[in-house]
Design a protein around this nucleic acid. Sequence first.
DNA 1: TATTGTTATACTCTATAACTATA
DNA 2: TATAGTTATAGAGTATAACAATA
Lengths: 137, 137
Amino acid sequence: MKDALGELPGYALRRASDKMLAKLSNSLANLDLRRTEATMLVQVQTNPDITPSALGEMLEVKRANMVPLVAKLEGLGYITRIPINGRSFGLRLTELGVQTADRVRSIMLDHEQDLMARIPKAHREHLLPALTALWRS
Amino acid sequence: MKDALGELPGYALRRASDKMLAKLSNSLANLDLRRTEATMLVQVQTNPDITPSALGEMLEVKRANMVPLVAKLEGLGYITRIPINGRSFGLRLTELGVQTADRVRSIMLDHEQDLMARIPKAHREHLLPALTALWRS
DNA sequence: TATTGTTATACTCTATAACTATA
DNA sequence: TATAGTTATAGAGTATAACAATA
């Protein structure tokens, strides 16, 4: 059973991403959070009073799909809505939200360290620049 | 609007993968094939008489979900089923399937070249080894 | 007994269109 | 007129359980 695509960087990119993503999702399940929800907490912490629309744009999540995500995090008491004007509002972490965001950060940093540790030293420092070039080009 | 995660390799890995995947899917749409279906054609070409179960294992697609995929490719006249024994069968490309698999390969190779071209030369040769280490570790 | 193909089903994620209220 | 939030809905992709036929 021969893999016709195993040597293609693009194919390896997806396989590597899927594998690491599954690992991270598994770790975040300890906090009962999906990846996107966990990421939202961290990004709201860094960008207080960001609107759901702007946050969705950052995460490439359509604003219609942000609604249930924001509602869940609000329901859990992790974020609150701060009115900006009559039609929009900013998101801010609650005290509990800050604690949870810190736990998310810790899980994510562990994950990043584990990821880098899997890469042979000679290639390690090249990964981020290569991926960034792909992502932002 | 600050990205709290932009410098993390794991995060960049997913963003790069998503972006390249979308590009590839878009190119394959010219053949009216999804990524998984296109990949199936190439893998069947390399592994004639592979069973749906074995192929699903290779692609990490559950065998229950292989059923409609195999049915579609058979319905398009790209593959045929060769009985192996009373309960299983191997997949083989038809003449038309070979032609289509060749076009898929061509699209995928273009995609890979485009991908590599986006990466600064200094980092290029490090990408595949790094990703392979992540994927297969 | 274990495996292959299959059916049915449910859940997540994502995409689109349309509505409302406000800017 | 354009934008933010919302609702409803549809389409992928994926996961699980159960069954029949066969190894």
